[in-house]
Amino acid sequence: MGKRSAAGLLTSVDSIFTTQEERDNAQRSYVTDLPAAEISDFPNHPFKVRMDQSMVELAESVKQHGVLVPSLVRPMPDGSYQMVSGHRRKRAAELADLPTVPCIIRELTDDEAIIVMVDSNLQREQILPSEKAFAYKMKLEAMKRQGQRTDLTSVPVAQKSGGKTSRQLLGEQVGESQDQIRRYIRLTNLIPELLDMVDNSVLKEAGKLQMALRPAVELSYLSEAEQTALLEVMEGEIRTPSHAQAIKMRSFSEQGKLNPDVILSIMQEEKPNQVEQFKIPRERIDKFFKPGTPAQKIEDTIVKALELYRKRERAMER
């Protein structure tokens, strides 16, 4: 048997342990260092780059050790580059005043880039409902477009997956039911202020209104004007609607009967097992507390003050 060349041997081994798709991707990828200014953000990127404690720690790590994992970018027709995966690393590099960011440069179509961008970011430890909402919507739309292609280089998704729909495939990939995927995508119809309240249910920031997923989904069927009117009532009442109240509002909206008065009436209905609330206008007590004092701390302080007052009154009666 004749001697095989090293290149031939490598090709043979490569064909055994990798797929053709992986070999094609490797051929159209390379690694280099790029100035952060040359990398634009992914359009409509659904994942927030927050300046939180995690970012501070990442920036400090980057300052000491550099960026250890390259970002993934794709070349654009004008000669610039677009970030696909690595927005947080890029921001950390900027905070650490690094001149360049290590990047894998890969040729990707728009839909390929969307799918890679979503998949890579879904590995984060904490993902907000709003991030899932827009990410699932973007990926689902990209998968559907890929499934519609019938050219010689692409097999429709339905054929590749044994007839499963794009939503079924997406649900399997992210570990969510089809109904849950639908619920998250409905959130993209909320005005930003209401969507922030759904995120607050995860962030648990003191003093901010929080709203669960199920009522938020029902409210997503309201028009923008109806949602804005609801927002004003919610801020005035300092509460968010229950699931049952949200369903009632959606029903009135579908009948064309939802207006600010109806919204207020529904919001003032007593929720099941709800304890009656006593409210004090904030301006009457602001002078007793420092600006920015959390609502829970204010409530606890008032209760303690009343307990001391009651003890003093009882002592005077003796």
Rank of each mutant, 00 (worst) to 15 (best):
S242P: 08
S242G: 13
H243I: 09
A244G: 10
A244E: 15
A244D: 15
A244N: 14
A244L: 11
Q245I: 12
Q245L: 14
Q245C: 08
A246F: 09
A246H: 03
A246K: 01
I247D: 12
I247V: 10
I247N: 08
I247H: 13
I247C: 11
K248E: 15
K248V: 11
K248D: 15
K248W: 07
K248H: 08
M249L: 13
M249E: 12
M249G: 01
M249P: 02
R250S: 10
R250E: 07
R250H: 06
R250Y: 02
R250W: 02
R250I: 03
S251G: 10
S251E: 15
S251D: 15
S251F: 03
F252P: 06
F252Y: 03
S253C: 06
S253H: 11
S253G: 10
E254H: 00
E254G: 00
Q255Y: 03
Q255F: 03
Q255S: 11
Q255G: 06
Q255D: 11
G256P: 00
G256N: 10
G256M: 06
G256K: 03
G256H: 08
K257P: 00
K257V: 14
L258D: 04
L258W: 10
L258I: 06
L258T: 11
L258Q: 07
L258A: 06
N259F: 10
N259R: 07
N259Y: 01
P260D: 04
P260L: 03
P260A: 02
P260E: 11
P260I: 05
D261T: 00
D261V: 04
V262D: 02
V262N: 02
V262H: 00
I263A: 03
I263D: 05
L264M: 03
L264S: 01
L264I: 02
L264Q: 00
S265E: 15
S265R: 14
S265V: 09
S265D: 15
S265A: 14
S265L: 09
I266G: 03
I266S: 07
I266M: 07
I266E: 05
M267N: 06
M267F: 12
M267D: 13
M267S: 04
M267I: 12
E269C: 02
E269P: 00
E269K: 00
E269F: 01
E269G: 04
E270S: 08
E270H: 01
E270Y: 04
E270I: 04
E270C: 02
E270Q: 04
K271E: 14
K271S: 13
K271M: 13
K271N: 14
K271F: 05
K271V: 15
K271W: 12
K271T: 15
P272Y: 06
P272E: 14
N273F: 04
N273W: 02
N273K: 05
N273T: 06
N273I: 07
Q274R: 08
Q274T: 09
Q274D: 09
Q274W: 02
